[in-house]
Nucleic acid binder design. Structure first.
Lengths: 124, 124
DNA sequence: GACCAAATGATAACCGATTATCAAGAGTGC
DNA sequence: GCACTCTTGATAATCGGTTATCATTTGGTC
């Protein structure tokens, strides 16, 4: 993974542009706008290599396929639209989650997922 | 799925006794304490039938195998222990989650998962 | 206790997701 | 532009999880 190919450039660009986690299918579809011949194997290879070098990381949401997003974003959560199925970033956080755990449980991380309809799917 | 067998009784009892979501593997292991010959196929069949009749429902947590818990529990969330890997119920809820979504997003449900160590794994 | 249909358990089959294979294509340095 | 090697893309192989198959076992009923 050293050469600068148009496939890798396209996939990097997609992650840099979209500020939300993307599935392999989304990357494939978006990537084909730049490189029509793009194959799924290249998507997996490139995602694995970008994840390995710490440029993206996986985002697992309940009942959803694994998605990936750029590393280094500030703490945030996610919203899944029941209409279009896309995952969006949510900047806010309930903050005091440590207090929610029963006595004796030590919390070191938390994950919040909101479900509903995005602005685009709201009226539909 | 009509007869009352010791396998089904065992699996029902397990779900009634454990107040936390269980994976198929956990059900298999716990069930073998009652019915040593219990097979994984019967676990899947019984879980599917209990889910179909609305007695249990699936719980999907990020990056975890699907678990099942009894229906009818009050609203709650889950805690995953990094030590033993078990999922526990958390009664509390951050309440005002709807406000966390960006403007234009309509929230109809939410899921909160806490990660850390349960009392049993804390000192270890 | 005997009968019969339903349930069980071992295992094969299946399924979607991911990875490996390998011939063809394309960066990089000269 | 050439050569050399890495990368790509089509597809076969693989993998873990779940379901189907089928001979055997076992509730439920008479």
């Amino acid at each position: 993974m050293e050469r600068d190919t148009k496939q890798r450039r396209a996939i990097r660009d997609i992650f840099a542009r979209e500020h939300r986690p993307l599935s392999t299918e989304e990357v494939l579809t978006a990537g084909r706008a730049f490189v029509p011949s793009l194959g799924i194997a290249t998507v997996y290879r490139t995602i694995n290599s970008l994840a390995h070098e710490g440029w993206i990381h996986s985002v697992e949401l309940p009942g959803e396929p694994i998605r990936y997003e750029r590393c280094g974003k500030p703490h945030h959560h996610h919203f899944i639209c029941r209409g279009c199925g896309l995952a969006f970033d949510v900047a806010a956080c309930p903050e005091d989650v440590e207090r929610l755990a029963p006595p004796g449980f030590v919390v070191d991380a938390h994950e919040l997922v909101l479900y509903g309809r995005c602005p685009g799917c709201h009226q539909a």
